[in-house]
Amino acid sequence: MIKSQKNMTKRHKLTTRLWHWVNALCLLVLVMSGLTIFNAHPRLYWGEYGSSDDYAWAAVGSSQTLGYVRLGETKIETTGFIGNWRDSNGQIQKWAFPGWATIPSYYSLAEGRRWHFFFAWIFSVGLAFFMIRSMFNRHVQKDLHISRAEWRPSNILRDVENHLRLRFHETGSVNIYNILQKFSYVGVIFILLPLMIFTGLAMSPAMDANWPWLTDIFGGRQSARSIHFIGMSLLVLFFIVHMITLLLAGPFKQTWAMVTGGKREDSDHA
């Protein structure tokens, strides 16, 4: 009884904290090993099929002297970063993403795939566990549920204004998350992360035989691959914004709170 009362005063529940850090590690490895896999064929298509002779809506190009990313008809030079970069020995490499962004740092599709699928299992089981547990411990209903009042445009606009003024907490609010936080957390946890799992499965030929509707939902295997890549990009964007708000809201206190649980009434947040 005393224990549960104690938990109630924590800002982050134990499940939330455990999942947060396991998930952070998984996403780091999944993004970096995913970039290794992408390097094997750095072109993205829409539809069922797509290969070197077909039109790619996004592609990495490289030559002896430069690297570039082509999006539609727009070429963006990325020499030194994507398509043409120097490895730690000063050698020019022409793989799409550079060694510091991939696991392993050298090109090995087989090893990249092993890292990716191993951590994909931990990530998927962890996400499922977190979702179910968060329903039962009422994290979803109490902290993430968006009330009708919060949906009001005036409330959303006020929160946008608060964020622009770098005010992340409204004094006197009973919610631990403001509306923009709720949008991003709900969007990531309940839409983006499951989307990554399902677009990933949709690329598997065996899954395509088992669940053909899954590949169809995304408009074909190559579309699923494109959506998987775009979803990864959005997760990286989320991570960057997450880090900026963390820095602005007080990185040590916030990070410590995600380790120990923090106090609920103290409601600065990242």
């Binding site: 069922e48 099929y49 797509g50 599709l109 295997r221 190559q222």
Partner: peptide, 12 residues
């Protein structure tokens, strides 16, 4: 059928 290469591309 769709031929899926380990590298990521597909051809029907």
């Amino acid at each position: 059928t769709r031929h899926d290469c380990v590298e990521g591309w597909s051809a029907i």
